[in-house]
Design a binder for these strands. Structure first.
Length: 577
RNA sequence: GCGCCGGUAGCUCAGCUGGAUAGAGCACCAGGCUUCGAACCUGGGGGUCGGGGGUUCGAGUCCCUCCCGGCGUGCCA
C-alpha cells in the first residue's frame, strides 16, 4: 500500500522536476503517517525539500505536486496542501480495507518476509559463565537476544542462537576451591569463614584439615547455591572426597550443576540455543595459540613484565591490553578473539553480539583484532543493554553480591511468570536502564498489567469466535466477506494500525530493537479493547449477516496481528484468560 | 581525566531516516457492568523535552558546550 503510493509520488515529483528542466535525482522524500489524523492518512514533505532547489515557494510546489499526482492510480481519495507546504493525502477508503484480505491470506506469516533469505546470522547472547545462577540482567539479555533472533527469523534470515562461556580460566578454579571449602565445612572438618573475611574481598580464610591448609578463596563464590552443591556432594560421597583436588571433581560437578540450572531457567523462558561454545574447546583445539601466533605475525603482540600484551594503541584504541597474564593464564580477551575468529570462519554473514554494558569495553579490541587478522569486522555487530533494577513497594530493591541478597532471574520468573517477565524485559530500549516494577508486574488486579492487557485483547477475539460458533457461524476466509461493510471511523483506525505492522517489524528487525513491538501491541490492543467495549454500536455477531461476516474478518485479522506480534516476543496468545 | 549509555508529565518510559498542536502506562480526580469477556471502558488535571548556544522553512530528534546520573577505563569477571 505505502510502497505503491510512494511510487506514484516519486513519479509525480519526477514529472515536476522535468517540467522545471531539472534532470537530477529526486530527493529522499518522507511519506509518513501524521500524528494528527486531521492531517490525512499520509503526509509528504517533498515540496519543502524541493523549495530551495526549484527556487519556488513550498506551497506553490505542493499545489503543483497535488495536481501531478492526481488520484495516484485510484489510491488517493483527496489531497490537500497544508501548513508550510505539506501534502496531506487521504487514501480511498477501500484501500485500507485491502489490508484485511492481505492479512487473512497470509495469516501467521503476516509481517514476515524473505528479505533475509540465504543470509546466515549468528546471535550470541546470555553467555554467562557457569559460576552461578543467572541474574536479572542476564534475564534481560536472554529475552532481548531471543527476541532479536525471532525477529530475524521472521524476516527470513537463517539464524543461529549461540551461547558461549568461559570454562577454562581462573574463575573456574576459584569456583572449585569455593565448593571444596564448603564441602569440608559441611563435613564439619573445617570451620566456615568468619563474617569479617567474607565481608572483605581482600582477605582469605585458611583452615587446617589433616595437617593441610584449606582455603576459602578471597574472591570465592559465596552464594547459597555453593553451599547446597557442597552439601549434595557430602550426602553422596561422605568424606571420600577430602583428598580430591579442588580443580577436579569439585570444579567439574559445580560447572555441570550450575550450567544445568542456567539451562533450566532458559527453558522456563522458552529460550533454546542451537550451539553452545566454550573456551576450553578452543584451548584444546589449539585455537588460542593459533590466534596468538597470527597476531604476533602482524606485530600486534609483545611481552612485558612477564605478560603477553595486545597492541591496542596500534589498532587505534586507547591502550594495550593483557592477553596472557604473567601467571600463564589467558585473560578473557584472547579466547574472545579466538572465538570471534571461529565465528568468521564458520561463515556467518552477520554476527550479533548481545552484551551487558559492563562488557562493551572489550568489544572494540575484538573487532579491531578481527580486522587485523584480515576479516571483515563490519559483519560483527554489538547490541548493548544496560542493567536491571527492581522496584518493590515504590522503592528500589537493594542487591548485594557480598550479602547474598541477589535476586536471580529464577526468583523473578517464579514471582511474575514467563509472559510478564518477557514483556517487562523487552518493553524498554535496550540501551537504557530497566526499572522492573514488581508492584505492577505482580499486580493482583491484572488489568493494570500491560502484558495481560494485550493478551486479553487476543482472548476476546476467541470469545467472539465462540459466540459466533454458537450462532452456527465459522470465521470467514479472506474472500468470504465484503470489507466495505466496515466503514466506521474506529474500524478504519484499527485497519490502519494493522497495515502498519509489516513495516514496524521490518524496522524493529533491522535496528535490532524488539521493544517497538511491545509498544505497537499495546497501541493496537488500545484500539481494539475499546472497540469491543461498545457492544451495541460495534456488536460483531448480529442479524445483519453481511456485516457480521465483515466484522468477523476484522476480528480474525486483529487476532492474527496480535498473535504474530506476541510470538515475536515469545509471549503466549491465549484463547482464554 | 577519558570513553560509552542515559536525562521527556508526580513515577516508569515511547517518540521511525529532523515535520504540523510532544504521547502511553501507572498514580490522582470524576463516571460506567440486564454488554459477543468489566482482566474492560469514558472523561479530567498534569510538560522550561536537564541548561545554554548553533544549523534549518521546521529541532525532543542533528552539531557544540556545560550540568546531573549509571557503567567502563584491572595481569576482575
Amino acid at each position: 500500500m505505502k510502497e505503491r503510493l510512494q511510487q506514484q509520488l516519486e513519479e509525480a515529483i519526477r514529472a515536476l522536476l522535468a517540467e522545471a528542466g531539472d534532470a537530477g535525482e529526486i530527493p529522499a522524500v518522507a511519506l509518513e503517517i501524521p500524528r494528527q489524523k486531521e492531517h490525512g492518512d499520509f503526509a509528504c514533505n517533498a515540496a519543502l525539500l524541493l523549495a530551495k532547489r526549484l527556487g519556488r515557494k513550498p506551497r506553490e510546489i505542493a499545489e503543483a505536486l497535488v495536481e501531478a499526482l492526481g488520484d495516484a492510480g485510484g489510491l488517493v481519495d483527496r489531497a490537500e496542501v497544508a501548513g508550510p507546504g505539506f501534502v496531506n493525502l487521504w487514501l480511498a477508503g477501500d484501500r485500507w480495507r485491502d489490508v484485511l484480505r492481505g492479512i487473512l491470506e497470509v495469516g501467521r506469516s503476516y509481517g514476515g518476509s524473505d528479505e533475509g533469505a540465504g543470509v546466515r546470522v549468528q546471535v550470541e547472547f546470555v553467555s554467562a559463565n557457569p559460576t552461578g545462577p543467572l541474574s536479572t540482567g542476564h534475564g534481560r539479555q536472554a529475552v532481548l537476544g531471543d527476541c532479536i533472533a525471532r525477529l530475524l527469523e521472521f524476516r527470513g534470515f537463517d539464524v543461529t542462537r549461540e551461547y558461549y562461556f568461559n570454562n577454562g580460566g581462573r574463575q573456574m578454579r576459584v569456583l572449585g576451591q569455593s565448593v571444596k571449602a564448603r564441602y569440608l565445612e559441611a563435613l564439619g572438618v573445617a570451620a566456615p569463614p568468619p563474617a569479617a573475611v567474607l565481608a572483605d574481598p581482600e582477605k582469605s580464610w585458611v583452615d587446617e584439615v589433616g595437617g593441610l591448609p584449606v582455603q576459602f578463596p578471597a574472591d570465592g563464590y559465596q552464594g547459597d547455591y555453593i553451599v547446597e552443591l557442597a552439601e549434595a556432594l557430602c550426602a553422596e560421597h561422605g568424606d571420600a572426597l577430602v583428598g580430591e583436588p579442588a580443580e577436579a571433581i569439585f570444579r567439574e560437578v559445580a560447572e555441570k550443576q550450575i550450567f544445568a540450572g542456567i539451562r533450566a531457567t532458559l527453558d522456563a523462558l522458552g529460550i533454546h540455543f542451537d550451539v553452545y561454545s566454550n573456551e576450553k574447546t578452543l584451548y584444546d583445539e589449539g585455537k588460542l595459540d593459533a590466534v596468538l601466533e597470527d597476531l604476533r605475525a602482524v606485530d600486534l603482540i609483545y611481552e612485558s613484565e612477564g605478560a603477553v600484551w595486545l597492541r591496542g594503541t596500534t589498532l587505534g584504541l586507547d591502550r594495550d591490553r593483557v592477553m596472557i597474564r604473567s601467571s600463564g593464564e589467558p585473560t578473557y580477551l584472547l579466547p574472545d578473539i579466538a572465538y570471534h575468529r571461529e565465528k568468521m570462519e564458520r561463515g556467518f554473514d552477520v554476527v550479533v553480539d548481545v552484551m551487558g554494558a559492563d562488557h562493551i569495553d572489550q568489544f572494540p579490541f575484538v573487532r579491531e583484532a578481527m580486522s587485523a587478522l584480515g576479516y571483515d569486522a563490519g559483519r560483527i555487530e554489538m547490541v548493548m543493554h544496560q542493567f536491571v533494577t527492581l522496584t518493590r513497594a515504590g522503592r528500589k530493591v537493594k542487591q548485594s553480591t557480598r550479602k547474598a541478597t541477589i535476586v536471580t532471574a529464577d526468583d523473578l520468573l517464579e514471582e511474575v511468570g514467563g509472559d510478564v517477565f518477557r514483556f517487562f524485559m523487552i518493553e524498554r530500549r535496550a540501551d537504557g536502564h530497566l526499572d522492573f516494577d514488581l508492584d505492577l508486574a505482580t499486580e493482583r488486579n491484572w488489568n493494570k498489567n500491560p502484558a495481560y492487557y494485550v493478551q486479553y485483547a487476543v482472548a476476546r477475539t476467541h470469545g467472539i469466535e465462540r459466540t459466533a460458533a454458537d450462532a452456527g457461524l465459522a470465521m470467514p476466509g479472506a474472500d468470504d466477506f465484503d470489507a466495505d461493510r466496515l466503514n466506521l471511523p474506529e474500524e478504519l483506525e484499527v485497519m490502519k494500525k494493522l497495515g502498519e505492522f509489516p513495516e514496524l517489524v521490518a524496522r524493529a528487525a533491522a535496528a535490532r530493537e524488539p521493544h517497538h513491538l511491545a509498544y505497537y501491541l499495546r497501541d493496537l490492543a488500545g484500539l481494539w479493547n475499546p472497540y469491543l467495549q461498545d457492544g451495541t454500536r460495534h456488536r460483531v455477531v448480529s442479524d445483519d449477516a453481511g456485516r457480521t461476516a465483515a466484522r468477523l474478518g476484522l476480528v480474525l485479522a486483529v487476532r492474527t496481528v496480535l498473535t504474530n506480534g506476541l510470538a515475536l516476543l515469545g509471549i503466549a496468545a491465549p484463547e482464554r484468560m
